[in-house]
């Protein structure tokens, strides 16, 4: 993983060598958890480079890293804050990730679908976030590294009024700080 990352950085620098360019490439501020200061890396659009997306730069210790390599969210069934076996597996990977990225902290967001009342859903979101935090702490994560916040039904990822959307919205999301 690390080798791949370094090689991609070199690849990126060799190709462009500047921070921005008119072809729509963008600059990522890479403050990796290894703590060696920041490195400016220019990332080309995937259409410009014939590689798979996972080969592009994913700076370790970032939200992108968590999303791509671990999974930032787990899902819940209706009116429940129980962690399924699948959810626990994701959280076990999150705990490992936190152990590898000691500079990172989490804000765990708890969310609910639109099929509950506003205030109850705030309480339900809080429970879901706490269930995730408690499991991570049980896996050895320092509780000071995890904050929780509930958004109830205020921040859906899918606003459609469909069962499919509701299952996506009943979630907790670990946000790297």
């Amino acid at each position: 993983m690390r080798f791949k990352l370094i090689s991609t950085i070199i690849f990126g620098l060799a190709l462009s060598g500047c921070e921005t360019s008119s072809d729509g490439s963008r600059t990522i501020e890479n403050s990796a958890a290894s703590g060696s200061g920041s490195t400016k890396v220019s990332v080309l659009k995937s259409s410009d480079v014939k590689t798979r997306r996972s080969d592009l730069v994913v700076p370790p210790g970032t939200q992108e890293d968590l999303v791509v390599n671990v999974g930032d969210r787990v899902f819940f069934s209706t009116d429940s804050f129980q962690l399924s076996a699948g959810s626990r597996a994701v959280l076990e990977k999150q705990a490992k990730w936190l152990a590898q990225n000691l500079g990172a902290t989490f804000s765990v967001e708890g969310h609910a679908d639109e099929r509950g009342t506003r205030e109850y859903n705030l309480a339900l979101g809080e429970r879901r976030a706490a269930a995730v935090r408690d499991y991570l702490v049980a896996l050895g994560v320092n509780p000071n590294r995890i904050q929780t916040i509930s958004f109830g039904k205020e921040r859906p990822v899918d606003p459609r009024s469909l069962g499919e959307a509701w299952s996506k919205n009943r979630r907790s999301v670990s946000v790297v700080k």
């Binding site: 309480a123 809080e126 706490a130």
Partner: peptide, 9 residues
């Protein structure tokens, strides 16, 4: 009002 402590309201 409700106040949440350790996830419980």
């Amino acid at each position: 009002m409700s106040i949440a402590k350790n996830g419980n309201s």
